[in-house]
């Protein structure tokens, strides 16, 4: 166990293993997103109340899932970095933040666009929408905080702390639809309960969600490798890479 954790600490080991994992996650992401998109856009039946505007769900829900999962991942990486001083966790956290912000933006934008035909308004200051907007600001805060320090170690620690504190917003987002009156519909998916949709509707949604997760993993592996090149460029093994790798 400890040997394994010690290996995980090593950027060199991560660089090698991620090179092997990466193509699988890219391939899975591409296949799942293509299948999910075609199925969701063209084959899933129209909603009996919302018509075809409900097809926005296939980008809205996966983006909103990722927006929250990425923040949780960042907070966990922050704990790992602060407690065990594992640099690779901080590198991954730094690389995740912009994707998290992009996903939060997609969730907000697609939600606003969906709101127009469905609710008759693109924005409401209700609990779900407001807490999602706060999530976007938290992401931007984490990104800005990292840029605000000249010392990398201070930047890493500050960003980790903000991620660890900000993660309190995640349960607020999740339960906002139950705690407060809101326009937003309750969860479409539950792990335990029955899905609120027929199979032809939620199967493509599940595929899209999985595809988005694979995309997140693939991109984080790729960008963390880049970050290793950036931060460890004085290490012998990184310099040796410069000769061979493209």
């Amino acid at each position: 166990m400890w040997a394994f954790i010690n290996k995980l600490r090593s950027p060199k080991w991560f660089y090698a293993i991620s090179a092997r994992l990466q193509p699988w996650f890219w391939a899975a992401a591409l296949i799942l997103i293509v299948i999910g998109s075609v199925w969701g856009l063209a084959f899933a039946p129209a909603d009996y109340q919302q018509g075809n505007s409900f097809r926005i769900i296939y980008v809205h829900v996966p983006a909103a899932f990722l927006a929250q999962s990425i923040f949780v991942s960042m907070a966990i990486a922050g704990v790992v970095f602060m407690v065990w001083k594992i640099k690779i966790a901080d590198m991954a956290a730094a690389m995740m933040a912009p994707l998290g912000a992009a996903m939060t933006f997609i969730a907000l934008f697609s939600g606003a666009v969906w709101g127009v035909p469905t609710w008759g308004t693109w924005w409401m200051w209700d609990a779900r929408l407001t807490s999602m907007l706060i999530l976007l600001f938290l992401y931007l805060g984490v990104i800005a905080l990292r840029g605000a320090f000249t010392s990398r170690d201070s930047a890493s620690r500050a960003a980790s702390v903000l991620a660890m504190v900000g993660v309190i917003n995640i349960p607020i987002i999740k339960y906002s639809v139950d705690w407060w009156y809101t326009l937003h519909q309750p969860a479409s998916f539950t792990i335990t309960g029955r899905a609120a949709m027929p199979l032809e509707m939620w199967a493509p949604l599940l595929i899209m969600v999985l595809g988005f997760y694979c995309f997140f993993i693939a991109l984080t592996l790729m960008r963390t490798r880049s970050e290793i090149l950036r931060r460890e460029s004085n290490k012998r093994w990184v310099r040796d890479l410069a000769g061979g790798e493209r």
Binding site: S37, L41, A46, N52, S53, I56, V59, I106, S110, V113
Partner: peptide, 16 residues
């Protein structure tokens, strides 16, 4: 045409 919802559906999908 997306049953008249084209601007909403394609805007959300396009941006994503």
């Amino acid at each position: 045409a997306m049953g008249g919802h084209a601007p909403y559906v394609w805007a959300a999908w396009g941006v994503t």
